[in-house]
Design a binder for these strands. Structure first.
Lengths: 195, 195
DNA sequence: GTCTATAACCCGATAGAC
DNA sequence: GTCTATCGGGTTATAGAC
């Protein structure tokens, strides 16, 4: 059966999500109207509601998918090895993954406050799961004597803050290559937790 | 001459700025209406325009005053000493200053995108001046042999990102004291740039 | 200096035509 | 599936009374 002419659900749906991600990241959730998202997609505002029940769900879905994909990607990238090896894998993975998805990390860290409470709680669980992965590595390194981290929870927060910062200033056309930046950050992180 | 009854310019003016800072930090610039600011102050929306030409100026002024006070406070807190001594002063100053003003740093880093271009450019100059202070310390440390920082500019960004992160999770009622947090962060920073 | 009222406009979300 | 039109309400900023 030929698809009905003018039916683009499988094209428009993803486009709505992409447009929302781009605009939320650029201007902030509260500053982006459904009309602006629609204009970016190339449809009228009313048509968006075929793909999302409301604006809040759009934000929530973007964050949830991002966090789930992040967790899955790290599970894939994690290595069997010594704590220093795993920490290097984490640092390089985190930078690499986020430099490829600057919009995602931007909304994941900046738009948490615009989630309604029950949505916030769900995303927070995923975020903490990711952080816990790093905490586990730091604790293993303390146990093995490779690291001297007085408070692994605090150190994990500090490390993630540092690594996240790269997305705020890195530009591909800039002075330094991704590989260089990745290596320098890893070197700083390595030294900061070393025994 | 007795002041005219109902004249509270010197009280209401600062209250408007305080209310705007509090609400911008809590809910985000775009999500805060002039009516909400007025309600927080205890006046009607129209009265705000006696103290600010518009909402944008309110944000710009808050950021500008914050950055100027930050620069002045660091100029005061900076020490004459070796690069490691100056770096410690910077780390402790930065954490201490920002933990005392969580709302200020929040808007200074999160609401940059809501500044109109010419305002953004002015704030950016001040922000870069502050960062340059740290870059200078790192370069001096490289020269003296105390530090081994391959790219002082990048390292400064990384360090500030790491230190800023503390404001997103630190709570006075929490597990760790300010002094403890300050010392652990300083220790990580010290090691991360050490020769 | 602050108020009320209002101009001019934008918002999220829905209804119904096609 | 997408459109136009619209409801009910919010927005910034201003005008004029007191």
């Amino acid at each position: 059966m030929a698809r009905k002419s003018g039916s683009h659900a499988d094209i428009t749906g993803p486009k709505v999500r992409e447009a929302a991600l781009k605009l939320f990241a650029r201007d902030g959730y509260a500053a982006v109207s459904m009309r602006k998202i629609a204009a970016e997609v190339g449809v009228q505002a009313g048509a968006l509601y075929l793909y999302t029940p409301d604006k809040q769900s759009l934000l929530y879905d973007l964050m949830k998918v991002h966090m789930e994909e992040l967790l899955a990607a790290w599970a894939e990238a994690d290595v069997n090895g010594t704590p220093p090896e795993r920490l290097e894998a984490f640092a390089r993975f985190h930078i690499h993954y986020h430099l490829d998805r600057p919009d995602n990390i931007f909304i994941a860290y900046m738009e948490l406050r615009n989630l309604e409470p029950e949505n916030f709680a769900e995303i927070e669980v995923l975020r903490r799961r990711y952080e816990q992965g790093l905490i586990d590595i730091l604790e293993a390194g303390n146990a093995s004597g490779d690291f001297a981290v007085p408070d692994p929870k605090l150190a994990a927060m500090a490390a993630i803050s540092m690594l996240n910062g790269v997305t705020t200033w890195f530009r591909d056309e800039g002075r330094l290559s991704r590989e260089t930046v990745e290596t320098i950050y890893w070197d700083m992180l390595r030294k900061s937790v070393a025994a």
